[in-house]
């Protein structure tokens, strides 16, 4: 998902009886769906895993501005331009809320930013794919936000209070993102031959990367097991991916578009679709930095950060001057 491949302690999940009293009290609260707040006692592994997960999620929102931002100046109508700008602005807001949530765990936004820029922290693989045509903007809203929402809705119930509250706010704002994307796809799919081709091409390119957003199967992962026990992960990757496919295939059919998977078939027994796995080698390559636009994405963020340094320093220096002038006057 936006937080793919987050490592937890790497150890198996302890039973309540194996825990010290503090940890046991913590786990019992989590089990009873009582939120953990910043000042509450928490295991160090929980804190560290959360920083990684929320940080990765925040970075994904920020880097995620770039592929869609790429089309703001080229949007085909004034209304589309405003919608897209408002949408990408929302993503910046989501990044902001999430950084703030992570900050309650004792890490600063600047520290997290430096970790992103140095490659120590990752962001979702999906944002390393380029947006080549206007239909890609439709596909991103429909598929990428669609997949993100699938993960984010359950996370509203996550055990860490600030994270959960950020997710509540984000989910409310997300509700228009997927719809505006699908709305673009409808116009394209009902449009001219060229528009239809563009729409199909966008689906072809974004289908598998969207499936990768949920991460590789974590059925046997100790990290996932621990994260689920801590309720910072609610569903397994496969579960969410299945849900996403089941929801999206009929939407593609409605558009008259073809999902680029010959093996796709309804499976009556499981009450869901059978579908082909994405190419996981590609996923790991892209995650490691070999995607077509990895370099561009990080470079854009680095440039914004470096070029902005004098602005951040200048405004702070002015604020400090004002403060000392005020103190002197009192």
């Amino acid at each position: 998902m936006y937080a793919q491949m987050v490592k937890s302690t790497g150890k198996g999940v302890k039973t309540l009886d194996e825990m010290e009293p503090e940890e046991r009290a913590f786990q019992e609260k989590v089990d009873a769906d009582i939120r953990i707040e910043p000042r509450d006692w928490m295991p160090e592994g929980y804190r560290k895993t959360l920083i990684r997960q929320i940080g990765q999620h925040a970075h994904s929102e920020i880097v995620g501005q770039l592929p869609e931002g790429n089309w703001i100046t080229r949007a085909p109508t004034l209304e589309r331009k405003m919608i897209l700008l408002a949408k990408v602005q929302d993503e910046a807001g989501h990044g902001l809320y999430l950084y703030c949530a992570a900050e309650t765990l004792g890490v600063s936004r600047d520290e997290m930013t430096e970790m992103l820029l140095s490659g120590k922290m990752k962001y979702s693989s999906i944002f390393n794919y380029p947006t080549l045509t206007w239909a890609d903007i439709g596909a991103v809203g429909w598929l990428v936000d669609g997949a993100a929402i699938m993960n984010q809705v359950p996370l509203q119930r996550t055990s860490y209070g600030p994270y959960s509250r950020a997710m509540v706010r984000i989910c409310k704002e997300e509700s228009f993102h997927q719809r505006q994307g699908y709305d673009i796809m409808m116009k394209m799919a009902q449009g001219s031959e060229a528009q239809k081709r563009m729409a199909q091409d966008a689906l072809n390119r974004f289908w598998y990367p969207s499936l990768m957003m949920f991460g590789p199967s974590d059925a046997n992962s100790v990290h996932s097991e621990q994260s689920m026990a801590w309720k910072i992960k609610i569903n397994s990757n496969d579960e969410l991916r299945q849900k996403f496919v089941d929801q999206t295939v009929p939407q593609a059919e409605y558009l008259g578009l073809t999902v680029p998977d010959d093996t796709l078939a309804w499976n009556e027994d499981k009450g869901g679709y059978d579908f082909a796995e994405p190419d996981w080698d590609e996923f790991f390559d892209v995650l490691k930095g070999a995607g077509p636009v990895n370099h561009d994405r990080l470079e854009a963020r680095r440039k914004a950060w470096d070029d902005g340094a004098w602005v951040r320093e200048g405004l702070l220096a002015h604020a400090e001057k004002k403060r000392s002038a005020k103190v002197a006057a009192e």
């Binding site: 920020i62 931002g69 990408v88 440039k303 950060w305 070029d307």
Partner: peptide, 22 residues
């Protein structure tokens, strides 16, 4: 102004510039 979206010196400013552009 919309060209700044995703590239501003700090997140708060990114959001503010987008509001102005909108």
């Amino acid at each position: 102004v919309s060209e700044w979206c995703g590239h501003a010196p700090v997140l708060e400013e990114d959001i503010a510039l987008a509001n102005t552009a909108l």
